[in-house]
Design a protein around this nucleic acid. Structure first.
Lengths: 243, 243
DNA sequence: GAGCGAGTTTGCGTTTGCGCAAGCTTGAGG
DNA sequence: CCTCAAGCTTGCGCAAACGCAAACTCGCTC
């Protein structure tokens, strides 16, 4: 059961059509994609496995073909902060692009994953040879910078309640799957995970979810959250629910 | 008095040597620098003047020749957050580089400034023509992404006291000037500014500075902070000052 | 050199959210 | 089907930091 999704992938032939529809590779010729693909290695990572760790030599960059990857920073005191979730089709671990030679965070498979990787050494020649790839990639880094700045503003100005609501909405939009009850976040996520995304404690998240469940905004269970009333949750996120 | 620094600059001839020592332009031929310079416009901005505003069409990118620029984000509720300070020699407002067509923040002259600007339209051709410029620039964006991520971690895990101490140390390192009493932050900075960098209130910053002044870690006055005991302040920043 | 206003200090009450502790639930694996 | 540990809930007390208010101080301008 756990492996079904993976098997589907290994029945597929790894060919150019696999990449051609993904944003980073938009606008690149099929022949070039074949060439790129011939340099890549594919790998499966079981849920929980570390694809790379903070501080490791950055000798590869990655494309997530299937699954979800959690990007986690560790503080000197051992606390964890979730920097972002990677969805399928996204590049990650592109330390080369930003002039680093070690990875700045851990990448952990949130579910079983299929990942392509390229040797870091080909980064330079790749961006030079495919300008659209370079443009796409740098635009993506730009939007991650944006995200990060927005999150700083959020952390600086909003209360925990609002931040948790925003985080759930973002996840629901990004990776939500429509169900009978609402929008289900499509991978296992614990109270602890949510607290590490929002800079709070699992206790506070638990309390908030309980209270929202009573009010009918969400349904949640063990490592599972469904947003049932997005608009009302949005009001919480924007602070319009105060008396 | 206020204009003395500026005048020095306008006595200088704008020539390639002006750029050649700045990190973004490292490794570019003198002739190429002359060409670049011929496309640039120079301007003075008085203290407090807005060089561009959040949401404006991004039709230029900038190089700070002299002075200090504050990059400020405004929230929907009207609160301000200082994203960073730009020191002389740094590029800023490079929305093009990250695929944006409006500026994501305000840029305000923290003191009288001298600024070069180029039309945004030449960004693409510039990065293509000068690969080292592209590399330098993207490495810089990468380090800003890093900074932002680090700040998120800081906001999520550290108390106000630690964040304020870190912010002061960062400013002192970045733009500090050695004086008889210690390291003076080299531009006017108010309690309010510091609070907008650290996600707190001017009251709390004032209380912290008062207490640190009593303990001899800093000296501070109206829009002025001198770090006198960097190592002890560093202990505060890392949380080692608790009983 | 007098007056003004921006910037700063400080006290006090209040709120938010944390820390700790104890008990409960659930689902995966044997 | 049973077990058990990982994940979740909840109560209680407490500390950090905010919000508000009032007073003060310094440096700039006229």
């Amino acid at each position: 059961m756990r492996l079904r999704k993976l098997e589907v992938f290994f029945l597929k032939i790894l060919d150019a059509t696999l990449l051609s529809n993904l944003p980073p590779f938009e606008g690149i010729e099929n022949q070039d994609l074949e060439d790129l693909l011939s340099l890549a290695t594919s790998a499966r990572h079981a849920k929980g496995q570390h694809i790379f760790d903070q501080g490791d030599d950055a000798n590869a960059f990655f494309l997530l073909l299937d699954g979800h990857v959690r990007v986690v920073k560790i503080t000197p005191h051992g606390e964890q902060i979730i920097a972002r979730y990677i969805s399928s089709g996204e590049l990650f671990g592109i330390a080369q692009a930003i002039g680093r030679d070690t990875y700045p965070a851990n990448a952990v498979a949130a579910v079983d994953c299929v990942v392509l990787s390229w040797p870091g050494t080909i980064w330079q020649q790749t961006v030079q040879r495919y300008p659209t790839f370079a443009t796409n990639t740098y635009a993506m880094i730009g939007s991650r910078l944006q995200d990060a700045q927005d999150r700083i503003v959020e952390m600086a100005t909003e209360r925990v309640e609002q931040r948790v609501a925003s985080a759930l909405l973002k996840l629901a939009n990004q990776t939500g799957r429509k169900t009978a009850e609402g929008i289900l976040i499509d991978f296992p996520i614990s109270r602890q995970d949510i607290s590490e995304m929002t800079g709070t404690t699992l206790h506070t998240v638990s309390r908030l979810l309980s209270s929202w469940e009573q009010q009918g905004l969400v349904k949640s269970g063990r490592q599972k959250v469904t947003v049932t009333e997005g608009h009302r949750l949005l009001m919480v996120a924007s602070g319009q629910n105060r008396d």
